[in-house]
Simulated scan of single mutants.
Amino acid sequence: MRLKFSQFLIAFLMISTLMLGGCSTGQVASTSSPTSVATSPASETSTNQTTEATSVSETTNESVPGMTDLPRLEGKATVVITVKGSPITVEVDGTNAPITAGNFVDLVQKGVYDGLAFHRVVRDPQPFVVQGGDPQSKDPKFPVARLGTGSYTDPKTGRERYIPLEIKPKGAATPEYNKPFDATARPVELAHKLGAVAMARSQQPDSASSQFYFALADLPFLDGSYAVFGNVTQGFDVVNKIQQGDRIDSAKVTQGAENLKTPGQ
């Protein structure tokens, strides 16, 4: 369906802000910028960075460069995120986004999200996203203007973890990696529908780490550029009440934990 000019303009401005937010740490939009779904850029030395899209017939970690050390979800899982005492139930889809879903479930299992704040909430000029998951937000004294630049650091290695952009075209046997594509020509299996849960990233495709967002409306202009990995099945009314600065009480895997496969298993 064609967008009206006003809708197209808003979409263009949102995408422009996304790209600006990812150019460099100094250019990341502050939390006062209403339309950024971007995190800090990935390290230039990250082993997850590749320059060409990869389509594989078998999406094993060994099939795609840079993924041998990443967890994966083989199937689905249920995660309950509690905010201000109220639960949000998320179905995490490892069937269509095994690496993105595996990364999220692994971080939930590690307790990474407990106590983190939602640093960006955008409802005007139209519903957009609620974004959180920056590990820096656990420190209440961390400057609000700098939230949105943090990534998960593995305490065992001291290294930041980044995951490849992972999007599965509709009808495809496996996801494609490392490069955005035009979803108007090639629709995706996991679309930015109302209640979708996806990973935030910078301009670098393979720079997602721990930050995620809830889609507050259908956002088709993000399809093909950002990786959706699940959707809210219950508690979207709780999502709609989240304000900037609200914190995650806890995030727990309630079903499907056995589907998480970590390196070495």
Rank of each mutant, 00 (worst) to 15 (best):
T153I: 15
G195I: 14
Q211T: 10
P164E: 04
A183I: 02
G171F: 12
S207R: 07
V188L: 01
P220M: 09
T157C: 14
I167V: 14
A196W: 02
A208Y: 12
G195F: 09
S202I: 09
D154F: 08
A172V: 05
T174Y: 03
G150C: 05
H192T: 05
A217K: 06
L165Y: 04
E189D: 12
F221R: 08
P220I: 04
Y152K: 00
L216S: 04
S207W: 10
K156P: 06
Y152L: 13
K170Y: 14
A191R: 11
H192P: 02
F212A: 09
R201E: 04
S207A: 15
A200I: 09
I163G: 04
Y177S: 00
V197D: 02
V188I: 14
S209F: 07
D154S: 11
I163D: 00
I167D: 00
P220G: 12
Y213H: 08
D182A: 04
F221T: 08
T149V: 13
F212V: 13
L165D: 01
G148K: 05
L165R: 00
A191C: 11
A198C: 10
R201F: 05
H192I: 09
T149S: 15
F212H: 04
D182W: 02
F221Y: 15
L216W: 03
T149R: 15
A217P: 10
D154R: 09
Q203M: 14
A217S: 14
D182G: 02
S151H: 15
R159H: 13
K168W: 08
T157M: 07
F221M: 10
F214C: 07
E176P: 00
G150K: 01
L222M: 15
A145L: 11
D182L: 05
F214T: 05
E189F: 02
A217D: 15
A196Y: 07
A196S: 15
T174H: 10
A191G: 06
H192G: 13
V144S: 09
K179G: 00
T153Q: 14
G148R: 08
K156T: 15
L216H: 01
P155D: 06
Y162A: 04
T184D: 05
F221S: 04
A196M: 11
E160D: 12
E160M: 14
R201C: 02
M199Y: 14
E166Y: 06
A217N: 15
Y162Q: 13
E166K: 06
A191S: 11
T184P: 02
R201H: 08
A196G: 08
